[in-house]
């Protein structure tokens, strides 16, 4: 039987398998899958996350598993001591690591991420995923870019203030430190067996930054992030912000080979821009999956597949699926993707 990894590799190479690869990003739903009432309890143990990821993939039949717990985990690796958990959605960073500019000067980037106690459960999870489905199903990891990470270390508004108004020496120091963290983090995830490295880069979308600043600030920081380890397995993702108008630049300047679009991006336009040079991932508006009918879901998936499949090199995906999406809607979306995504 064909595996998710074979589908993904075929798509990257522009070859046809039985169908397009389908990535479904279920995270918090894992607690429910295991019958664990509290997300805090669920995320406290890497075995829980691995077990739930394996079970959900098996149950629904999509083509990826996640080693991501929640985005605030990266802040914990750098000293964040307080995360707010709630019942129905992803945990939030409550205690910012950076409270003033002295904290930026004093911020220390650990030499070996994989040796940190806060990474222990991630490693446990990755080891299980690698043992159970390594080489058969793509194992995804989530990494925040150097220019974006400060947003979860000091808050988005404080970071925008520093980024746009300076002092520039402190701004550049923080970007350099966060980039160093990224380089070490991606190395740790690669060594632990992650294949698909989702590079979260909202500051690479013109919904967030003007093109001038993307060229002046984002692009140089991306080179710092990426060049030491290369683009192998790297997926460009702007955290749901659209980015069709930077794709060409990212291919030419950095050689990125996979683009995980925003639901707001025009898939056919993205394919035209990419022109066979990379894998295009069409992404559904999964907030609407909460309320859409089965017919509406099927119509949207069909539209996306028709826009993305001609010429191959296409993957169907979701954002981080909200907890409120009814299970029958998840099934309806996946069944439609398997049906309309067949070759």
């Amino acid at each position: 039987m064909i595996t998710g990894m074979e589908r993904l590799v075929a798509a990257i190479n522009g070859e046809k398998s039985d169908r397009i690869p389908v990535f479904c990003n279920l995270l918090d739903q894992g607690a429910d899958e295991l019958g664990i009432a509290s997300l805090q309890e669920y995320y406290a143990n890497g075995e829980h996350v691995a077990e739930a990821q394996l079970r959900m993939r098996e149950k629904y039949g999509y083509d990826n598993v996640w080693s991501l717990f929640y985005v605030g985990k990266e802040a914990e690796l750098l000293g964040c001591e307080k995360i707010t958990f709630s019942k129905g959605g992803p945990p939030n960073v409550e205690d910012y690591v950076i409270k003033n500019y002295d904290d930026i000067v004093n911020l220390e980037i650990p030499d070996d991420i994989s040796a940190l106690p806060a990474f222990e459960e991630n490693l446990k999870c990755l080891n299980i995923l690698k043992r159970e489905v390594g080489g058969k199903q793509p194992i995804c990891a989530y990494l925040t870019s150097g220019i974006t990470l400060p947003a979860i270390l000091m808050g988005m508004d404080k970071w925008l203030e520093l980024l746009l108004m300076g002092p520039t020496d402190i701004r550049d120091l923080l970007i350099a430190k966060c980039s160093e963290f990224f380089q070490k983090e991606i190395d740790a995830f690669r060594k632990a067996g992650a294949d698909v490295l989702v590079y979260s880069q909202p500051f690479g979308s013109t919904d967030i930054m003007p093109m001038r600043l993307i060229k002046e600030l984002t692009l140089p920081s991306m080179k710092m992030d990426i060049e030491p380890g290369g683009v192998g397995g790297l997926v460009y993702y702007c955290g749901s912000s659209p980015f069709n108008n930077v794709i060409d630049m990212m291919i030419k300047e950095l050689g990125i080979g996979v683009f995980y679009l925003s639901p707001k991006d025009d898939i056919a336009e993205a394919k035209k821009i990419i022109n066979g040079r990379a894998l295009t991932c069409g992404v559904i508006n999964d907030i609407k999956l909460v309320s859409w009918s089965r017919e509406e879901i099927r119509a949207e998936v069909k539209r996306m597949c028709e826009a993305g499949m001609p010429g191959g090199k296409f993957l169907f995906g979701t954002l981080v699926m909200p907890y409120d999406i009814p299970k029958q809607n998840i099934r309806a979306m996946l069944e439609a993707a398997y049906e309309y995504g067949s070759y």
Binding site: D157, L160, L164, D207, I208, M209, P210, L213
Partner: peptide, 9 residues
């Protein structure tokens, strides 16, 4: 087509 940075500033 204003962006977040422009709104903020």
């Amino acid at each position: 087509d204003a962006n977040l940075a422009q709104h903020f500033m």
